[in-house]
């Protein structure tokens, strides 16, 4: 794990990997959305509005996966003091928040024609909205600690905040089982999928595609933060003469 402790060694891999992740992600997203919009058959109950599934599910997965990433980064920062962990945490936060917001808004747009409402305070929606606020809190904390010039830009308070926020992840996942909710249960679980095969495969493409794309964005953000750290270190040395 500490093989990547040296930013230079990390960058030697991250820089060539970024465009591959990005463009393969874009390709898969376009193919998956095309198939989801025009090839997959309409749902027996919801008709064409179910097609929002192909972007709503990847958004939910990356919103929650993003916070899982923040949690892993926080543990690596607190336990192993890994120098890249804080950088990774800061890099994940913004795209994670974007996808959480997309999950909420595409869900809202989907809810209107199917459920008959834009928004209801049910367990799933409320806990997902809480995660958006947690992301905003994390970004604010990370930014204020970066302004104070802490190494890598994420204070230990911010990392601990990520750990506490992770408690919301099981709440989001089980909200539809613990409580009577408007949102339906999970379609895909350990026991298999409740989505017909002809409607499932485009979802595989978009989930994979958005995941690659997300990885590319995180790598770009990490490169930006590492370069900013280099600039600051250089300016500090120059001002000291």
């Amino acid at each position: 794990m500490h093989a990547f402790a040296n930013p230079r060694r990390f960058l030697a891999i991250a820089v060539p990997v970024t465009p591959w992740c990005f463009w393969s992600g874009v390709l898969l997203i376009v193919a998956g959305c095309w198939a989801g919009l025009f090839i997959a058959p309409a749902d027996y109950l919801q008709g064409d509005s179910f097609r929002i599934l192909y972007i709503h599910v990847p958004a939910a997965w990356l919103g929650m996966g993003g916070w899982s990433g923040l949690t892993i980064a926080a543990v690596m920062q607190l336990v192993w003091r890994h120098p890249l962990a804080a950088v990774a945490g800061r890099a994940i936060a913004t795209p994670g928040a974007v996808f959480t917001a997309l999950c909420l808004s595409t869900g809202s747009i989907w809810g209107r024609p199917t459920w008959g409402t834009w928004w209801e305070w049910d367990g799933r929606m409320t806990s997902m909205l809480l995660m958006l606020f947690l992301y905003i809190g994390y970004i604010a904390l990370a930014r204020s600690s970066a302004d104070r010039g802490e190494a890598g830009g994420v204070s230990r308070v911010t990392a601990i905040f990520a750990l506490i926020g992770a408690l919301n992840l099981p709440v989001i996942h089980y909200s539809v089982e613990w409580w009577n909710s408007l949102h339906q249960g999970s379609s895909i679980g350990l026991s298999g999928s409740k989505i017909a095969g002809s409607m499932l495969w485009p979802l595989g493409l978009t989930v994979l595609g958005f995941t690659f794309w997300f990885t590319a964005i995180v790598l770009l953000r990490m490169r930006a933060i590492l370069a900013e750290n280099r600039i600051e270190a250089r300016l500090a040395r120059m001002s000291r003469g």
Partner: peptide
Amino acid sequence: NILAKHDERYMPREME
């Protein structure tokens, strides 16, 4: 007010 609730199954119309 009335809201509709659907379940977690998705399938094509031909399979109805």
